[in-house]
Design a protein around this nucleic acid. Structure first.
Length: 905
RNA sequence: GGGCGGGUAGCUCAGCGGUAGAGCGCUAGCCUUACACGCUGGUGGCCGCAGGUUCGAAUCCUGUCCCGCCUACCA
């Protein structure tokens, strides 16, 4: 059945914004993108969508990578797979915390009890300036976070809908919502059960501004100016040496001195004690292979703690602990002459240290350097080299060196001793685990697209140097579900934590009481105290596959959705999001979380810098969506291969917009062609039509194969080339006249119309994953009813079976030959200064004998398209097939007056 | 320092063992009853550099130089 179609009923131009709104509503109403929970796992395609951070705005980088996912997903849906495509919002963590504090002018104190029914409104500048922030409980704070993020989520959803993401909007989550908190806390309990989690008081990388522990994955090196300070120490019993340090302020925390065991300069000192300048603390001098004789002066001071090696030596050499840097980055008060801080001259040491107490690192460094310039600060008062001159040997020598920073922080990280929870990652003989090896293996079980991205994961995993610190001293996050008993003497017993049962989750240990205790016992001897910390946001984010599958809540659903099929993400978070997600899936169930990771590249600005908010070079999507339409923007995104960084280029958006217009016009034209009788594929009888369909077969095969490898960009390029140059520029032009019935018989007219309709039908479906709006629009004119597929996005992806009914052409090149001759005629016309629309009164064509015979079936179409009234076609022996057609002569008719012009004239 | 990716037409990018490609740009012409967001032509590159393998190399190997990213490096 052919549906009647009146092209005059269409607007002259495609109104993209209106269509976008209309189709989004229609798709929602029809549930086109709904996951069918009744279908089995083997028919289902599960996406583990990246939950964007909602306390920010979306930029073209987001549109770019989310479109990649959507294109892949739409093609799978058309292939008949039951697509599960959820959306999450990452509202958990510092960015939201800061935003909410500012928005309402509040501060969180987790020790406060919950105030039911507390409501707040947005604060104004006056309030922020003049009033102190309102202090609220953590539970209230989380409620406020929900309030703000809810608004952000609505804006994000609107944009994601606008760009046509085929998300099942019933499947959404926010990383702080009840279900996510439940699953994150369940993850914790499960890891405790599996002995993969432990808490310990130890030196941990610490951000002194945010006052929280951070994990290895959140640390980045920044090149900062520093300086070597050469400082003379004395050796007990005589002698001295000079150490080099960039951190003289840690001198009071010095616990030992160390040099390479083979270093002749210091060999005789091993086993003796050194005496520090200023504080005159006696410290061990020990040998270690880790000391590099070529670095600095070859001998160094060990402090608790200056760097990771200090921690190592502290452990292996069982050195004393003399911590001086506090959580806020200032130096704490200590008493020299005590057991903890020995000194041969406690009075002098305490007098010096008194100046440092409460100072920050930078200030303390300046003060210590001043003290070191004073001869009176020398390590001993005795008359030997170490006791008669200033300890600082020369002016500090400036250097540039890498300094570890929290990725979101300003000041260098410090190693501060605190109690934290860790997930085991490193091999641990005592625990009998080697998760690092397991992770390396799981990284190979996952397919990485493009494949080289696996090495990012592998390198990172091989370079692990610490277990995963998962506790954070923040407020807006998932609470660590733990309480600690308080002994009768008031001491908190961290060794015997109290855990909730899974049935109680989610809980907040700061407002809920542990099993077997009453709330009144909180903070009392014999009672309990709640752990005030929250999880690293990655602890929750690493569970997105399980959050979607309702792990621990719905076993049947989990079985249908876990592991997922694809994880789309960008490459800079391989070490965090991909890594931790693989870790969690492995530790919980021994599985991979997904079978494929598809990595999008970055959008770079014209200077090839990464587009990011902090750099301030972001392009916001809304204007571009309005100017180029959603399909146009999607075209731009889908033109970039996976894993490839791409410079933002508005030219490509223009091309996308043009394609949309072309599809609209070509669709309108093709569907306006009519013929008497059957115009189904069975009517395709002409040689040239069959040859054209045969080329279409090649396209379907290649585009489908490309999608198998997630090479949507390749599929798009091939489809676009075929559509534009094969269909609209060539085939359409060649058969126009026949389709109008001006040449040939009714059967040949039917054949042309049937071919046009079939080709458009197939091409629309090949384009549908990339440009969902225009393809749906054109599909709706005729095909929706004809095929009983109301939405093209549920229509089957084209296969060779669609074209199987059409016999092969007798010569696969028939169509190509027709194009060759048509082009030759056009070229001759153009060279003669005439437009291709002009009538050719006569022309003389020559070609090889084989070409002359092979062109026969297409000749009528070509001559009609080129408007040739009379021609000769000569076989010419010397010409080869590769010479094509030679136009010996052409005579062009005078320009005709158009009928309407003639009338007007 | 280690690893990965890239260096192809003025620009943005395909191609990755068989005679250099696309779009944009530039240029000469065209209102050709779907489309001027269009059509027909043309212009333009010793495929970073140097070796090697091969009948044949942008395409494989080795070295080298640029660019980017990941990672390491607080004495």
């Amino acid at each position: 059945m052919t549906k009647p179609f009146d092209p005059a009923s269409l607007p002259p131009h495609f109104d993209a914004p209106a269509a976008e709104k209309r189709w989004d509503e229609a798709w929602s109403a029809a549930g086109v993108y709904h996951w069918d929970e009744t279908r089995g796992r083997d028919e289902t395609f599960v996406v583990d969508t990246p939950p964007p951070t909602v306390s920010g705005s979306l930029h073209m980088g987001h549109v770019f990578s989310y479109t990649h996912t959507d294109v892949i997903t739409r093609q799978r849906r058309m292939r008949g797979q039951n697509v599960f495509y959820p959306m999450g919002w990452d509202d958990n963590g510092l960015p939201t915390e800061r935003r909410v504090q500012n928005y309402f002018h509040v501060k969180c104190d987790p020790a406060l009890p919950y105030e039911p029914g507390l409501t707040m409104t947005q604060a104004d500048d006056k309030k922020r300036k003049e009033e102190k922030p309102r202090i609220v409980s953590r539970k209230n704070f989380i409620e406020l976070c929900h309030q703000v993020t809810h608004e952000d989520e609505k804006a994000f959803e609107a944009l994601f809908r606008r760009i046509g993401l085929s998300v099942d909007w019933r499947q959404t989550y926010a990383t702080i919502d009840d279900r996510c908190r439940h699953i994150a806390q369940l993850s914790f309990l499960d890891l405790v059960d599996k002995k993969q989690l432990y808490n310990i008081e130890s030196p941990t990388m610490w951000d002194v501004d945010f006052q929280t522990a951070v994990a290895q994955a959140e640390v980045e090196d920044r090149d900062k100016p520093g300086a070597f300070h050469d400082i003379e120490f004395a050796v007990e019993g005589g002698g001295s040496f000079v150490i080099a340090t960039t951190r003289p302020e840690l001198l009071p925390a010095c616990v030992a001195v160390c040099a390479h065991p083979d270093d002749e300069r210091f060999k005789s000192y091993f086993g003796k004690r050194a005496i520090t300048p200023i504080f005159r603390a006696p410290v061990r001098i020990f040998p270690s292979e880790l000391a590099d004789p070529k670095k600095g002066t070859g001998i160094l001071m060990v402090c608790t703690f200056g760097d990771a090696t200090d921690v190592l030596w502290w452990r292996t050499e069982k050195l004393p602990l003399r911590a001086i840097i506090q959580r806020d980055g200032t130096l704490r008060a200590v008493e020299f002459g005590s057991e903890e801080f020995p000194s041969l001259d406690a009075a002098r040491a305490n007098a010096a240290y008194a100046q440092l107490v409460g100072k920050g690192v930078t200030q303390a460094r300046k003060l210590v350097v001043e003290l070191l310039k004073d001869a009176a600060s020398a390590a001993t008062g005795e008359a030997h080299a170490g006791g008669t001159r200033a300890p600082l040997q020369a002016d500090p020598k400036p250097i540039q060196h890498p300094v570890k920073h929290y990725e979101k922080g300003e000041r260098p990280l410090e190693l501060v001793t605190t109690r934290q929870w860790f997930v085991r990652l490193l091999p641990n003989a005592a625990a009998g685990t080697d998760n690092q090896a397991g992770l390396l293996a799981k990284g190979k079980d996952v397919k990485w697209w493009p494949g080289f991205m696996h090495s990012r994961f592998h390198n990172w995993t091989e370079g692990l140097n610490s277990d995963w610190c998962v506790s954070r001293q923040r407020y807006f996050g998932v609470p660590i579900p733990v309480w600690y008993p308080i002994a009768d003497n008031g001491v908190i017993d961290h060794e015997r934590p109290l855990y909730p049962s899974a049935a109680q989750l989610p809980i907040d240990p700061m407002s809920d009481a542990p099993p077997g205790y009453a709330e009144a016992q909180r903070g009392k001897p014999g009672g309990f105290t709640g752990d005030p910390d929250v999880f690293d946001t990655w602890f929750t984010s690493s569970l997105t596959p399980q959050i979607s599958s309702h792990w621990g809540l719905d076993a049947a659903r989990h079985a249908k959705l876990f592991p997922a099929d694809i994880r789309p993400q960008s490459h800079e978070i391989i070490r965090t999001w991909a890594f931790y997600t693989i870790a969690k899936a492995m530790l919980h169930e021994g599985k991979v979380p997904w079978h494929n990771v598809v990595i999008s590249g970055w959008i770079l600005d014209p200077d090839r810098k990464k587009m990011s908010k902090s750099v301030g070079n972001v392009v916001t999507p809304m204007k571009l969506l309005e100017d180029y339409s959603s399909d146009g923007v999607r075209y731009w995104a889908a033109s970039a291969r996976l894993g490839t960084d791409t410079a933002f280029d508005e030219k490509v958006l223009k091309v996308g917009k043009r394609l949309v217009t072309k599809l609209f016009n070509a669709g309108k034209y093709v569907l306006a062609q009519t013929a008497e009788g059957d115009v189904s594929p069975a009517a395709i009888t002409e040689e040239i039509d069959r040859a054209f369909v045969h080329e279409l077969r090649g396209l379907v095969e290649k585009a489908s194969a490309a999608f198998e490898e997630f090479e949507y960009a390749q599929a798009l390029m091939l489809t676009e080339q075929f559509f534009w140059s094969r269909l609209t520029d060539s085939y359409l032009e060649l058969v126009k006249i026949r389709a109008r019935g001006e040449v040939g018989d009714p059967a040949s007219r039917r054949s042309a119309v049937a071919t046009l309709r079939l080709a458009l039908n197939v091409l629309l479906r090949l384009f549908a994953p990339v440009v969902p709006y225009i393809t749906e629009e054109v599909w709706s004119w005729v095909y929706a009813e004809e095929t009983k597929q109301p939405s093209i996005h549920r229509a089957p992806w084209p296969t060779l079976a669609d074209l199987a009914a059409i016999p092969l052409p007798s010569d696969a090149q028939s169509f190509e030959l027709a194009c060759t001759l048509y082009t030759a005629l056009n070229k001759k016309k153009t060279e003669s200064g005439a437009s291709v629309g002009r009538v050719v009164t006569s022309t003389a064509i020559a070609a090889s004998p084989t070409l002359v015979s092979r062109i026969a079936p297409a000749l009528a179409d070509v001559l009609a398209a080129a408007k040739v009234k009379a021609h000769t076609l000569a076989s010419r022996e010397p010409l080869a097939d590769t010479d094509g057609f030679v136009i010996d002569a052409i005579e062009i008719a005078p320009k005709e007056a158009r009928a309407d012009e003639a009338e007007a004239g």
